[in-house]
Computed example of a mutant assay.
Amino acid sequence: MTQQKLTDEPPTHSRQLGIRLSSTRRGARLARQLAVQQFTEWIGLPHDSDPARAVALVMAELASNAMRHGSLPGRDFRLTLLLLDQGFRIEVTDTRPERCPRRPATEPASPDVPSGRGLLLVEAYAERWGWQGRDAYTKTVWAEVARPV
């Protein structure tokens, strides 16, 4: 699993879906449901398969971060799903380019701290993840979940 900031174009894909969602809990929940539904349709696996669960977990974290840390009042986030030859790519574009994700600490957080472990999960379940500033107003955080062999 690797994390990186990319400045080049995303990999080629065979299918793509993009949608704007509200930066609310409801928008984050819809993003998770849509990502799992699209993954299972494109890949042909059931919703309760391990890869579908990985997609749900990664999507939940990226959408939650966009909602909590990447939104401005009245601004939505954009979800883009891509079917790649080697996997399934999730991209979440938000309106706070100055708030870039940091590589998660390798030390576990104190049990008393209620948050701060999400990117550890992304790093564990995604083959690759990173972020990209595309313009002065947005940033895209992305993760790729491996396609089952």
Rank of each mutant, 00 (worst) to 15 (best):
T106C: 08
L84C: 03
A52Y: 03
E144P: 02
R103K: 09
L21E: 01
Y125C: 13
E41C: 04
S23M: 06
G130C: 06
R15W: 00
R103W: 01
A124C: 04
S115P: 01
V141Y: 00
Q33F: 12
L30G: 02
P148N: 07
P11I: 07
L82Y: 10
S14F: 14
Q132T: 10
K139A: 05
E9K: 13
T95H: 10
V113E: 01
A66G: 11
E61K: 11
Q33H: 03
P101W: 06
M1Y: 03
A28K: 00
T106E: 13
E107Q: 11
T7G: 06
G18Q: 07
V36S: 11
A28T: 01
I90V: 15
T140S: 05
W142H: 11
L121F: 08
P111D: 05
V145A: 04
P148D: 13
W131H: 15
R75L: 07
Q4N: 05
K5I: 08
V55R: 00
L34G: 02
R96H: 03
G118D: 01
V58M: 10
A52L: 13
V92H: 09
V36T: 12
E9G: 04
A35T: 08
F77Q: 15
A31E: 02
V145N: 02
W142M: 07
F88L: 06
V149E: 11
A54F: 03
G87W: 02
L83T: 09
L62Q: 06
A56D: 11
Y125P: 01
G116Q: 10
V92R: 12
P97T: 07
Y125K: 15
Q86G: 05
A136N: 10
A105W: 01
V36I: 13
P46E: 09
G70R: 08
A109D: 07
T24Y: 03
V36M: 15
L84M: 03
R117W: 02
R68H: 10
E9L: 09
T93R: 08
P111T: 02
V92F: 08
A146E: 14
T95E: 09
L120F: 00
A109R: 14
E127V: 14
V141H: 00
F88Y: 14
G133A: 09
N65M: 10
R147Q: 14
V58W: 01
Q33W: 02
A124K: 11
L81M: 06
D50H: 12
D135L: 06
P46N: 06
L57E: 03
R134N: 10
T80Q: 11
Q3E: 14
W131C: 06
A109T: 05
D48G: 04
L84A: 01
A56H: 11
